[in-house]
Design a protein around this nucleic acid. Structure first.
Lengths: 233, 233
DNA sequence: CCGCGAAGTTGACCTAAGTCAAGCTTGACG
DNA sequence: CGTCAAGCTTGACTTAGGTCAACTTCGCGG
């Protein structure tokens, strides 16, 4: 792999505490590849052959059943995905596809597992990474069970304003609306209507540009709580 | 704690590989208590002071928001819960209450974290435990996003037949119906109706006793998949 | 500058599931 | 034994959200 990408990977929580020689061994075994958009990387049910790290671009995790499809999460640089399947030497529970031209690091599962056995710091970093992922899904699950689709949208907009914008109320949606709809567990049509219901709360939509002109009132509707909406805790 | 309970705890995946002296240190710091049913053990938002291990009885994990409540999971002996919060030294994302008279082991978070730093085998066991919990929630989330309530019930019945029964089609529901309803993400009324829609598929309900007289036809409706329904993988 | 196709929107309609209220069943207790 | 309360079921109704089809918008290639 290109040496200019190494520091970014090394800086990841997962890799920044492990021994230098083990890190190098992992990287030796790894492949760095650039993929076009909309390319399927893994399919749910397949054995977990690689651990993936998104270096550039964007990856969608999704799942199918009953001829339906649901977006489960979007993965942004720089972070790893499907760690659990690799560790348990199990099949992937989710499929993954690129959503933009993406530079991706593939580390063979066997190497990940053998370094995991070898390097104690790496093993501990894994625990914290897994704990973070676990809490992320718990929060998603709570949102889906406890909130209406309008509430989910309202809270997501408030969060995106800080995550992808400047916190001032003006930002760009990071995904197209059908993806956002699936991520929020609703149809594109219903997302459209949900945006309309939020108009009286100061939500202005122009294509992919969002303007929250009255965050206060949007918050009274959304009732955000760190126990669902705070991505850090 | 009583020495007769020690072997069960030691036998847990989380604890069976760690060093003897570290295990003893953990147990020294721990409290073993018996709680009556319906007692709140932890409340979401509280700092994670203890790691809990259910030795006997049953514990419900649940969450509140918007004046709604949702059952997130049921914890049976012998297993630990809310590991992630303890490791990250964060607040609990879920509340927990006993659902039966329960014997529970409480290990102070600080002790868990210090032994985690000290004992490499314990750290590795944590990773696998976290990976298992992560995959459990992912499966729950997929079920909720991709299936109707009748399908969720049908698949749950098929699973319970193996998990709590003998796989022959006759078994007892492990929880009362309102709890089951909340776990499945529906109202008690709707659960009642869902049982009725399953009648033509050979599902007989008598109080808490279930009889699946035509598993084949129930399966054609449920369309179970290991990627959602297999608790092991 | 035109035309095409994909994404998004809107409206009409339908269906799954929630709500509310009334009954039923069961089991604990006097 | 009777009765009281909790859990469950049923029915009537409402509502959130899905579905289907038509229409609009917008970006892009010819």
């Amino acid at each position: 792999m290109r040496s200019s990408d190494l520091p970014q990977v090394r800086a990841l929580g997962l890799f920044n505490s492990m021994g230098e020689e083990n890190f190098e061994a992992l990287m030796q075994a790894a492949y760095l590849q650039t993929f076009p958009p909309q390319l399927d990387l893994v399919h749910e049910g397949d054995p977990a052959d690689f651990l993936y790290v998104v270096i550039e671009g964007c990856v969608e995790l999704y799942a199918n059943a009953n001829r339906r499809e649901a977006t489960m999460a979007m993965v942004h640089p720089v972070s790893a995905f499907i760690l659990a399947a690799v560790l348990k030497d199990a099949v992937y529970l989710m499929s993954a596809r690129t959503r933009a031209r993406s530079k991706i690091l593939l580390i063979p599962s066997e190497n990940v597992r053998s370094i995991f056995e070898l390097d104690d710091a790496f093993a501990r970093a894994m625990v914290l990474e897994m704990a973070g992922s676990y809490r992320y899904v718990i929060k998603e699950h709570k949102g889906l069970k406890l909130r209406s689709s309008v509430e989910r949208l309202a809270n997501t907009l408030l969060r995106y304003d800080h995550e992808f914008g400047t916190g001032t109320g003006a930002f760009e949606l990071p995904y197209d609306k059908r993806t956002l709809a699936s991520l929020l567990g609703m149809t594109p049509e219903n997302l459209s209507r949900a945006f309309n219901t939020l108009k009286p709360y100061g939500v202005k939509v122009n294509g992919t540009t969002i303007l929250l002109s009255d965050s206060k009132s949007l918050e009274t509707l959304a009732k955000p709580t760190p126990l669902i909406d705070n991505p850090k805790t």
